[in-house]
Amino acid sequence: MPLTHRLTLLSPLCLLLAACTDPGTTTTDGSATAETTTSTSTSAPTTDAAPTTSTGSDTTDTAGTGDTTGVDTTGVDTTDGDTTTAGGECPPVTQLLGPAGGELTLCGATLRVPADAVAEEVLFGIEVIDPPADPPFEQEFASPVFRFTPDDVVFAQPVELILPRPVTDSRISLGRHVPEDDAFWIVEACDVTDTTIGQSYYQLATYAALRGTYDYPDSTSDLGEGTIELEILGVPASFPIDASSFGIYADAADGSRTVTLKSVREVDGGFESLRIDFAVDSTGDVANLVAVEWLSTVDAGGYTYIADLIGSDGVITLSDATGDHYAGELSAVAHGGNPPHDEPLQATFDVTVEKFTFPPELSCMGGGG
């Protein structure tokens, strides 16, 4: 099962108060932290447009002396079209910044270093570079590719980076280049406006704004149909996929997909909800159970199974996988209740799902903006 399926599922758990950290970077306490991502790989077309002149000016110190001089640079028109070319018109900017912090700008990109992010002067910089890898699956570059430096220092306070983005109805995301994978990963962007997209990090890297090439529905409302028959605590329960629920799938570049089923039903004295996530390989025949979560406002709180993390013995078998229709059965040993204990559950399902993926910023505090 691809790792991207697991990390996509766990994205709602990434509710970080200060910043979302990068994959494999280190937090201030020295512990490694994995960042939420969505699928990577394969190319998507990019269409370049000539940059227009920026109204601002930047400071440049190519010698790294810390003595900056103001020079006019050209920026990126983010009102429409693509914003993927600017390297020749945007010479790199660098500046020594110490404990007092400071700010650098280049071609619509901004790097803001707060006070006490570093204990001594550090040379910060922004440069526009050629894309080191293709954009992720079903994405295209919507800004120049910016390298923010230093990219080998962990800061005491998160530094903020802001990238320009075009005004468009298409979904805009933030992409981070991961050298060890030679790929861009979509990461959370908790500061999104009509013309910019940004986030705060404890460590810098190479970033670009991304535009989705697939026109997703605005929400999960009315997506999917069918029924899930669940048995847990020895009691059967029927969960419909209807207007108050959803059945969705997300494709990956290798032809595999992740399916998510979510249903809420009224019961005497409250509500019960059921969520099932499973991955299907490129043949459409082999499935892996990723997670099951049953919650109740009435009985025992709820039970959860997450592959290799919570519970055990998760198995799913498909009896039909024709197009966007899935039928089959699953079982798992979930963990929960009060006092906490293991509880077996099983379910059969017959559903039709529709294509949708959640915006990464939903992992941010407040659900993104």
Rank of each mutant, 00 (worst) to 15 (best):
G125K: 04
Q203N: 13
A237T: 10
D215T: 13
P166I: 06
R265Y: 13
G98Q: 04
A133D: 03
S282H: 15
T36G: 06
P51G: 11
A32H: 12
L163M: 13
D61L: 11
S57G: 12
F155K: 01
D82M: 06
A332S: 14
T53K: 12
S41L: 11
L318W: 00
E188L: 04
T85S: 08
P2Y: 15
T37C: 05
T21Q: 11
T105V: 15
A156N: 14
P91Y: 06
A327K: 11
D299G: 05
L309I: 11
Y249M: 06
S39G: 08
D342F: 07
T38R: 06
D242R: 03
G367N: 08
R211Y: 09
A279Q: 04
V187T: 04
A237P: 01
E361M: 04
D67T: 07
S312H: 09
D222G: 05
A347G: 03
S282A: 15
E127Y: 02
I310E: 06
I276D: 00
A205L: 09
T37P: 01
E293C: 02
P131K: 12
L230M: 13
T322C: 08
L289A: 07
E343T: 01
T38K: 01
A133C: 09
P150W: 15
T4H: 09
A237Y: 09
P92T: 03
G24L: 13
D320E: 11
E120V: 07
R257D: 06
Y207H: 15
T220C: 05
E127H: 02
T283V: 06
V280E: 03
V145E: 02
Y216N: 00
S238V: 10
L96C: 08
A209S: 15
D324G: 08
Q203K: 10
G88E: 12
S296F: 03
T110E: 07
P51I: 13
G101N: 06
D72E: 09
T195S: 15
